[in-house]
């Protein structure tokens, strides 16, 4: 107890409680004020603006990144729409080309058929002409042969009799035509 009392007394306290040693108050208050002022200036001049700037920058970065993400998403949607449109265009184009090709082939085919028909018609006409010619030739040959045979027959039947050649020819011609 004596020791406590003496140390307390040395600090000027009552009943050995240093918190009540009033002669240390000016000292503590002085250094407290110095500390608070120092901390206040360190914080308000250096630390707080710095942290506020960092937080603002982070907020800005976040906002920018979110905006960029939104932008990219929009672009992706646009790209998909463009792709779908291109696909649809290509499909209609392909259909158109197929249609045109089909029409072209059809036209060529029609032309070829028409040409072939014309050729066939020409050939048929030619053949008919020849047939007619051959027929005419045949008829004439028959007439001549018949006239000759008729003359011969007349000479054989009535030898010596004068036979009119023209009369025979007329008669044969009449018979052949009849």
């Amino acid at each position: 107890m004596a020791e406590v009392a003496s140390t307390g007394a040395a600090a000027g306290g009552e009943a050995g409680i240093p918190q009540l040693a009033f002669d240390t108050f000016p000292n503590q208050i002085f250094w407290l004020v110095v500390s608070l002022v120092a901390i206040y200036f360190i914080l308000s001049r250096v630390a707080l603006p710095r942290i506020a700037a960092v937080l603002a920058e982070r907020q800005g970065t976040l906002t920018n990144d979110l905006a960029a993400a939104e932008d990219l998403k929009r672009k992706a949607v646009e790209a998909e729409a463009a792709y779908n449109k291109a696909l649809a265009d290509a499909r209609t184009e392909a259909q158109k080309i197929a249609e045109e090709t089909r029409a072209g082939i059809q036209a060529d085919l029609n032309e070829a058929i028409a040409k072939a028909d014309a050729e066939i018609a020409a050939k048929a006409a030619e053949s008919e002409a020849r047939i007619a010619e051959i027929q005419a030739g045949a008829v004439q040959s028959i007439e001549e042969v018949a006239k000759s045979i008729a003359g011969d027959i007349a000479a054989a039947v009535a030898p010596g009799a004068s036979v009119d050649a023209d009369a025979i020819a007329n008669a044969v011609s009449a018979r052949v035509k009849g």
Binding site: Q28, L32, S35, A38
Partner: peptide
Amino acid sequence: IHWYTPTNATLWMGLAI
């Protein structure tokens, strides 16, 4: 202990700073 004397209070406040 004068008002300006560096004490253990000074030391530990300084360490807090």
